[in-house]
Design a protein around this nucleic acid. Sequence first.
DNA 1: CTCCCGATAT
DNA 2: ATATCAGGAG
Length: 212
Amino acid sequence: MNEKARILHVIKTLKTVYGDAHIALKSKDPFQLLVSVILSAQCTDVRVNKVTPFLFEQFPDVRSMSEAPIEELEELIRSTGFFRNKAKNIKAASQIIIERFNGDLPLTMEEMITIPGVGRKTANIMLYNAFGVTAGIAVDTHVKRLARRLGMTSETDPNKIERDLMAIVPQKDWGKITYVLINHGRQICKARKPLCNKCPVQDACPSAKQFI
DNA sequence: CTCCCGATAT
DNA sequence: ATATCAGGAG
């Protein structure tokens, strides 16, 4: 079995095991999803889901968020970390969305990444989950770690990892592959102590023996 | 490359 | 005590 066939086998197996994998961030519309994704940087989704109910109770939409006092915003999201940057970005993003996009989120990668606090990872998550648009593959810390361990890339830069993954993963799987890898990364292929003996793709993983 | 940063697992 | 957690900007 060649390298490409090995990788496709890994993807197929993980898709079967984590078939119901989906976004874990709670939101009731695209704008709330954007705020949640910005908050999720270097923070667990469980923590984000704990603060957003209180945050959206005070500032439920793009209009109210654009006028939110920065100190109140900071206090409401403090526990998610990087709270000064995140508060500043969320407010600036809200103002930009109103001024440049007439209050609605843009539907293209090009426009999406002009929003403060939004890079390719956040844009990919938004386009797929809010609008069903498949522009690329969202590379977060889990996707980066797993793609490297599973031998799908040797790069460390998220943009280069995304390019490598897009060349291997069938386009119809670009949206879902992120959640498949995230779930596998949380349950089995954990950052510190990966559970290789319980891994469904152990036999096809070039990193397995190094952790056993 | 560095900085931002609190919460949690190990 | 320290590594890690749905990253992005300068």
